[in-house]
């Protein structure tokens, strides 16, 4: 069919992860909104250090899946195991402590904070000092603040955001905001990183840069990454395994090569989304 080209070389190649430990295990997860089923009976495994892509046409339930994993939505049925802990409903307020961080399809930054402050907020779960200690600036509050600052600065530098560090995020271009979101997620040093279309609306150059950041994030700390992305070229090059959703159901799951060869995927997804995906890909 020849519509997919692997650009593996450009991003350093997908590393085959050591499938030692399971970070995330979904079993029979189903979610519906007022009778409309968003995702239905989904099983999904993510191993440590694995880059796991989820693809599918718009409305296939990809974002819903990420929202269920991160505790934004409560599934109707099924279980979500994070590490060894099994949940029927992931508690959103504990997600950060469970080692999960995410980005959002529609940017969800804090507009009233600067880039640095947004990134620092990613460390909120690690803060144990009280507000009085923080105001006076003594003891552990001072240590925590210095630690937060140092780690945030480091991530900001690594993601090439240093020049906009003190700008309010609302004033930055879209692509840069996407990167700030990634920085806010990375600074918590998650073991599971959920990226909801991190490269949407980016130029080819920006996408390539972003893909490099994603790979580096995995390679540095052996974090697992769940990636939703429309650009087939990016997905094929970056991921270890790909799950394909269509109308809320998983229709294929496997290595990029296996998925590419799967007739159901070609029929159901690649066929449907033929137009825009080819156009998008031709830019890469």
């Amino acid at each position: 069919m020849g519509l997919v080209s692997t650009n593996v070389a450009e991003w350093g190649g997908a590393k085959s992860a050591a499938r030692s430990r399971q970070i995330l295990t979904l079993r029979g997860v189903t979610l519906s909104f007022g009778g409309v089923t968003a995702i239905s009976d989904i099983d999904l495994d993510v191993a440590e250090g694995e880059i796991r892509a989820i693809i599918g046409p718009n409305g296939a339930g990809k974002s819903s899946l990420i929202n269920v994993i991160s505790g934004v939505y409560r599934p109707d049925r099924g279980t979500i195991a994070i590490g060894d802990t099994v949940f029927a409903d992931v508690p959103g307020s504990r997600v950060a402590r469970l080692g999960i961080a995410r980005t959002y399809q529609n940017i969800a930054l804090f507009k009233g904070l600067t880039v640095l402050e947004n990134v620092e907020t990613g460390r909120a779960a690690t803060v144990s000092s009280t507000f009085i200690e923080q105001v006076i600036g003594i003891g552990r509050a001072r240590r925590e603040e210095a630690d937060t600052r140092a780690r945030s600065e480091a991530v900001i530098d690594a993601l090439h955001l240093t020049s906009v560090r003190d700008r309010l995020v609302g004033t930055l271009p879209y692509g840069v905001q996407k990167r700030v979101e990634l920085a806010r997620a990375l600074v918590s040093e998650p073991r599971l990183l959920l990226l909801d279309e991190p490269m949407a609306g980016m130029t080819a150059g920006e996408k390539q840069e972003m893909a490099g950041f994603v790979l580096a994030a995995r390679d540095r700390s052996n974090a697992s990454i769940v990636l939703i992305e429309h650009d087939i070229g990016v997905v094929m090059g970056l991921s270890d395994r790909i799950a394909v959703l269509d109308y809320g159901r998983k229709i294929a799951d496997g290595t990029p090569d296996a998925v590419r060869a799967d007739q159901r995927v070609i029929d159901a997804y690649l066929g449907v989304a033929h137009d825009d995906d080819i156009i998008e890909e031709s830019h890469v």
Partner: peptide, 27 residues
């Protein structure tokens, strides 16, 4: 002083996007 500390950042985070604040670990 308060609004420049982590607590102050948490205030603004809750104001600007409660869901994202919660997921990022803001109590």
């Amino acid at each position: 002083r308060l609004v420049k500390t982590q607590t102050g950042r948490n205030f603004i985070a809750v104001r600007d996007n409660e869901t994202a604040a919660k997921i990022s670990g803001v109590p």
